[in-house]
Each structure stands twice: as C-alpha cells, then as structure tokens.
C-alpha cells in the first residue's frame, strides 16, 4: 500500500520542526551570560537558531533528495516534465517567508526594547529629569553640557536611578575608565553585581568599539561623538573587554577586563582606590 504523499510531508515537517526546536534549545553556541540583557538576547538567539535550523535542514534535504531521486540515469536522454510554474505554490513560498520575517522582526523589536535600545538617548530633557534625583549622575550630566548630543547606544529603562556612571575613553590602544564620583581612573572596568552601570564613551583618536561578549553588548566609541551604553551585570567574575573596530596595528591587542564584584567587594575596591592614585593604570591622564 502506498502511503499518501500528504501524510509523508506532514510527518517529515513535524520531525523537522522537532529537530529544529531540540537543536535550538540544546545546542549552546554562546558564552556564559553575565548581564541582565544577556538572557533576553539568548532567548532571541534560540528563536533565530531554531528557525534557521529548520530552514537549513529542510532545504538541504530537498537538494540532496532531488539530486539523488531525480539524477539522470545512464542512457536516459529524455527531458523532465515541462512545468513552467505554479502560482499557488509561488504564493505559498512568498507568504511563508514574509510571515516568518515579520514575526522575527516584531519579536526582535520587542527584545530590543527590553534591552533598552529604544530609549531616546539624545533627548536631554527626559534624561535630565530622571538624573536630577541622583547627585553623582547629575554631576556627570552637568559635565556633559546640555547642547552636546549623545549618539546611539543601548540605554536601560530606569537606568538613571542609582546607576553607576563611568566615563570611558578609548585611544590607540587602550580603554581608560574614569569614575567621576570617587575620582578613580582605572585601566580595567570594575562594576558591582546587580547595579546598573552607565558608560559614557568617547574616543580620542580613531573609532574603537567597546564589546563584552558575556554582556552581549557592543557600542562603537567614536571621536567627536559621545556614545552611551548601560547594562546591569548579573554574574560575578572577570570578562574580556574587546575592541571590535579596526583601530590600527595593535587592534588585536586592545583588550581589557571588566571585573564584576559582589557589592561588598566593590565597596572595598572603591575604598582602596579612591585616593586618586591608581595602581592598575599609572601615568594615564584622567579623562
């Protein structure tokens, strides 16, 4: 008895979907997550990975099946069937990708909003109002004059309340971190776990990029245009800060570390380092 083609197609489709879901959920491609938006990112990655796996295996399977099943046998000089098209089929494979792409677009917009990407960073009125409550932050906001426009980056909802401001200066080939409150300048970024950190970044020479893979965050550091990035570390540890924009011969060596402390350990780090001199980056001008 011949199994109906519709049934075969359905079963194959279900199996393929299950394989995609399993792969998306169980194959781990990303480094450890250490910021509050990393799990959000990983959720998006899982969705994209699942859809991608289903599509890729499906299309690869179709090619392989076609090449084997419809290969030209020796001695066969006839043609295939003269099928020039099929409108319903065309509509199906226009509509399905369109729907998938629309779904992915809306979903990633949602993810982006949850990461704080849609916060109007260069709207200074909004920023000032929320900053006033915190003396440290508003000190920083005052130092950047209101006429200055901050370009792009990832903000975070409610980031201003109790956020730790850090000024980042990138230059060939190092990052310098300045804590405007206690006046610490460091070559490594020390942050307390669970507290939102707001980086205000500017480059001195060429374009650099601040990237912490474990935070799933990256922002170009641009000369002449301050950029902003905020994040909340969630896992104590030491993670690499990588420059991700070609910045000259030592670009590959332009690395630093972000050290996420437990809150107590961060306080003691602050105390140890507050008297202006900085052990980890001597000789650097304060930004």
């Amino acid at each position: 008895m011949e199994i109906p083609a519709a049934l075969v197609t359905l079963v194959l489709g279900v199996v393929l979907t299950l394989v995609g879901l399993w792969v998306g959920h169980n194959v781990k491609m990303l480094p450890i997550d250490a910021s509050s938006n990393a799990p959000v990112y990983d959720a998006l990655f899982e969705v994209l990975f699942t859809i991608g796996t289903i599509l890729f295996i499906g299309i690869t399977g179709l090619i392989l099946y076609s090449l084997v099943r419809f290969r030209r046998r020796a001695g066969d000089t006839t043609d295939g069937e003269a099928i020039e098209g099929n409108l319903p089929l065309e509509i199906v494979w226009t509509a399905i990708p369109a729907i998938v792409v629309l779904f992915v677009g809306i979903y990633s917009y949602d993810i982006y909003e949850r990461m704080g990407g849609m916060v109007p960073l260069h709207d200074h009125m909004a920023m000032h109002q929320s900053l006033e409550s915190n003396p440290v932050v508003s000190a920083m906001a005052d130092s950047s004059s209101t006429s200055e426009r901050i370009w792009g980056g990832i903000g975070q909802m409610g980031a201003a309340d109790g956020a730790l401001p850090v000024e980042v200066t990138a230059m060939q080939f190092a990052f310098i971190f300045h804590y405007p409150g206690p006046g610490i300048t460091s070559g490594e970024l020390h942050v307390p776990m669970g507290q939102t950190v707001t980086l205000r970044m500017e480059a001195k020479d060429v374009i650099h990029a601040f990237w912490v893979p474990q935070f799933r965050l990256k922002q170009d550091v641009i000369p002449g245009q301050p950029t902003m990035l905020s994040f909340t570390p969630t896992r104590a540890g030491t993670y690499p800060i990588v420059c991700a924009e070609l910045c000259g011969p030592y670009h590959g060596g332009m690395r630093s570390n972000v050290i996420v402390h437990e809150p107590d350990a961060f306080d003691s780090w602050l105390k140890t380092n507050t008297p202006a001199t900085v052990a980890s980056a001597p000789g650097f001008p304060t930004a």
Partner: peptide, 11 residues
C-alpha cells in the same frame, strides 16, 4: 536583527 547584531557586529 539589531539586538542580535549588537553582539556579533565586527566579529
């Protein structure tokens, strides 16, 4: 997708 790209851009 912007959020995806922000991690892997320039990698």
């Amino acid at each position: 997708q912007v959020p995806f790209d922000i991690h892997v851009h320039d990698t």
